[in-house]
């Protein structure tokens, strides 16, 4: 577990990878940028490139086809990096986990530092977890 808190107290730049979600987690992460949750007021932003990111969020069970793309994206995030798995699929808790194509979660593909449970987790839960990384 990397400990970014001292470095990232006022600014947390997040890159997201969908590794096979149902789009529920994406919808809730995207909601962080609407005026209701407005994550930017806390210094949290979603960035366009992994090269700009401190944190990588991952949703979905990491499908066979997405595995390499996820690993490549993670490797592009500068160290120290923090990996956050978002939603139950990413923890391997979905009905199709283990199928010929679905994968079985982020564990085993990438070391993950934090998991946010839920199907999907609410925007408040995601925001709270990300703010926790800044304390």
């Amino acid at each position: 577990m990397t400990r970014p808190a001292r470095l990232l107290r006022r600014s947390l730049q997040v890159r997201h990878v969908d590794a096979g979600s149902c789009n529920g987690c994406e919808s809730e992460i995207a909601a962080l940028l609407n005026p209701v949750y407005d994550a930017q007021r806390y210094g949290i932003d979603i960035v366009a490139s992994p090269r700009h990111a401190d944190v990588l969020t991952v949703s979905g069970p990491v499908t066979r086809q997405m595995r390499e793309a996820l690993q490549t994206t993670a490797a592009a995030v500068g160290e120290p990096r923090t990996v956050v798995s978002v939603g139950d699929c990413a923890a391997g808790r979905c009905p199709f986990a283990g199928s010929y194509a679905a994968g079985s979660g982020v564990d085993g593909v990438l070391p993950s530092d934090l998991h946010i449970p839920g199907c999907p987790p609410s925007p408040s839960a995601i925001l709270e977890a990300l703010r926790g990384l800044m304390r």
Partner: peptide
Amino acid sequence: WKHRGIEKTLEGLHWSDAGTTVERTC
């Protein structure tokens, strides 16, 4: 890229248990 094998996952399930998988298609 997000092919999860949902249809094959459903095979063998009783119809009354299919809902939680089907609703997670999207």
